[in-house]
């Protein structure tokens, strides 16, 4: 019974819903500040100290707007799909070392991919619930992105888990792999090669999955008016953004855990708070890098992006996967 209560508290407060909302506010503020600086603007500066509460104000504004639904759209289904998408992303945090009572099982990396795919599919289904030519274009493009980005994402993120399991007995578990992922870089030359190839492929695939420029063609404001979200506004748009922004926290966080050593050089089992701080510092470095790339890159055409994702991240990730399967 105590375990169930702990699990519910973790999923609602830390590292669950409340933590993710706070992180969305911080990361969106950071993203908009970086965007402002790159475009010779100041970025958010009025609401709260240094404008930190501007994303929160925007979030609340969207949620308390009147809920408009066209008569050709599905009414309830998008709300549940979006809510479950948010739930899937938040549930992922309980498998990471950020949780003080993390969930662990052999082969739980499969559950990570299952939940991560759920959130991507939720965005696609949100678009399918509203009829509009721009929405259809957006979903067609998003499907092309998923078919191109997801295999590379899965293959590359499997590599550190396989190497950790072979070298350190991580049982294909996300938590155990995160704790010992730093040894993958130093213990064997083959493991090092597999890790570096997978890290490059994983970063590119992560950009694709998160729709970071140059891979944001499913939204493409100037061409197809936000594609999947064309018909959305108010609380429905807020829920859709909730999935996107939460994904932009959780997936880079898992990248940090698997490829950048997680809590290393601190042993999180002995010093929990120190380990969490190290993970968050590494996460913010990756997030700032992604934000800068998102703001300075132009957008690929859909066919260019799909060709790129199949040519480089997928090929590299398969090579890394094959190397990781060799005797280390």
């Amino acid at each position: 019974m105590q375990e169930v209560i702990d699990l519910l508290v973790q999923s609602l407060l830390y590292p669950g819903l409340f933590f993710i909302i706070v992180m969305i506010i911080i990361t969106q503020w950071l993203h908009r500040k970086i965007q402002g600086r790159i475009q010779y603007r100041r970025g958010p500066s009025h609401v709260g100290p240094f404008g930190t509460l501007q994303p929160f104000a925007d979030f609340i504004k969207l949620f308390i707007k009147e809920d408009l639904v066209s008569r050709y759209s599905l009414k309830l289904a998008p709300l549940f799909i979006a809510s479950f998408g948010v739930g899937a992303v938040i549930a992922l945090t309980l498998f990471t070392p950020l949780a003080y009572n993390p969930l662990v099982a052999p082969y739980d990396i499969i559950v990570f991919f299952y939940l991560a795919l759920w959130s991507s599919l939720a965005i696609m289904l949100l678009g399918l619930a509203t009829p509009n030519p721009y929405t259809s274009l957006g979903i067609g493009r998003y499907m092309a992105l998923l078919v191109s980005g997801e295999p590379a994402f899965v293959a590359s993120f499997l590599v550190p888990v396989i190497v950790s399991s072979k070298l350190g007995g991580a049982d294909y578990s996300l938590y155990k792999s995160s704790i010992i992922s730093w040894i993958n870089w130093s213990i064997s030359p083959i493991g090092f090669i597999a890790m570096i190839v997978a890290a490059i492929a994983g970063f590119l695939a992560m950009m694709g999955v998160l729709e970071i420029k140059p891979f944001d063609f499913p939204e493409a404001e100037g061409e197809i008016y936000w594609g999947v979200f064309t018909e959305y506004g108010g609380p429905r748009l807020a829920l859709a953004f909730f999935i996107l922004f939460a994904e932009r926290i959780v997936i880079p966080l898992v990248y940090v855990l698997l490829f950048l050593g997680g809590p290393w050089p601190i042993n999180i089992a002995e010093n929990y708070i120190g380990g969490v701080i190290v993970i968050l510092v590494k996460f913010f470095i990756v997030f700032i890098l992604l934000s800068i790339i998102d703001n300075v890159m132009p957008r690929y055409r859909p066919d260019q992006a799909v060709r790129f994702l199949w040519k480089y991240p997928l090929t590299l990730s398969i090579i890394a996967l094959l190397i990781s399967l060799l005797p280390l």
Partner: peptide
């Protein structure tokens, strides 16, 4: 994991 996803989705909704 599925139960948590549905629970959290319901709370968010």
């Amino acid at each position: 994991a599925t139960g948590l996803m549905i629970f959290l989705g319901f709370v968010v909704y």
